Amino acid sequence: MRIVEGLRAGENRLTKHMAFWDSVWARGLLPPVEDAAEHTKLWWAAAVLMAAGGGWRGRRAAGAGIAGMAMAQVLSNWVAKQLVERRRPPKEWFPHEDVEDRPDSSSFPSGHTAAAVAFTTAVAPTWPWAGAACAVPTALVAIERVHSGAHYPSDVAAGAVIGVAAAAVVRAAPRLLLRHLE
């Protein structure tokens, strides 16, 4: 029981620390990242760019990314959020206005992070350069979700795990289907 309480206290301290992170970099970069990640716009735009400019590899990577993102959305928003009810971090912890614009759904897990990680993880094996390029905004989305007051760090970590799992399922599905059809 003490271990759980200690973990919770540590997570609360980290959340508050990230909330008060007030640098020019954070103020200038994180709000646009949040806007771009809303409704997965950032990842759809990345997929369009990959498909339009990357030839067969870009189209294949874009398709894998979109499929991974879709799977992550289902797993995080339609399954996990229905199973785990967790309140968002208290608004009092956040000194900025971003905290006013948060969803009403369960805090656990971060669907934005799940989608971002799934997209990037599904793209990387097909087109490593594009996967590396997507990793930067993926990390920024994860940071932003805590900084804005939408999630605790463990929500973001769970979203990342769901994203990796979703990408793995999408990457394995064709092989599994072929094996089943033989």
Rank of each mutant, 00 (worst) to 15 (best):
A172H: 02
A150S: 08
A115G: 13
G159H: 03
A45H: 00
P153R: 03
Q82Y: 00
A142V: 09
M71Q: 00
R145Y: 03
R13G: 03
H151A: 10
A9R: 12
V84M: 04
W25D: 01
D155A: 11
G63R: 03
G55S: 08
V33N: 05
A19D: 07
T138H: 01
G131M: 12
A47G: 04
P174Q: 07
R8T: 14
V123R: 06
L7N: 00
G65M: 10
S107Y: 04
L178D: 12
N12W: 10
G111I: 09
E100Y: 10
P90W: 02
G131T: 08
G28E: 04
E38R: 06
L177R: 06
L176V: 15
G53S: 09
D104G: 14
A51G: 12
D155Q: 06
P128C: 14
A80I: 15
Q82C: 08
V4F: 06
A80E: 01
W93H: 07
R102Y: 00
A116C: 12
P90V: 12
Q82D: 09
D35P: 00
L177Y: 05
G54D: 07
W25H: 04
H39R: 10
L42N: 06
P153M: 12
P31S: 04
F94R: 02
L178E: 13
G28I: 15
E34T: 12
H17Q: 14
E144L: 05
W56V: 14
V4H: 07
V156G: 05
E34D: 08
T126M: 10
S76D: 03
T40D: 14
D22L: 11
Q82T: 07
L49I: 15
G111L: 11
H151L: 13
S107N: 10
A165Q: 00
A36L: 15
D98F: 10
P153S: 09
A173N: 00
G65F: 07
R8F: 06
L7T: 02
A47E: 04
E5H: 04
F94I: 14
A124C: 10
A133G: 05
A166D: 04
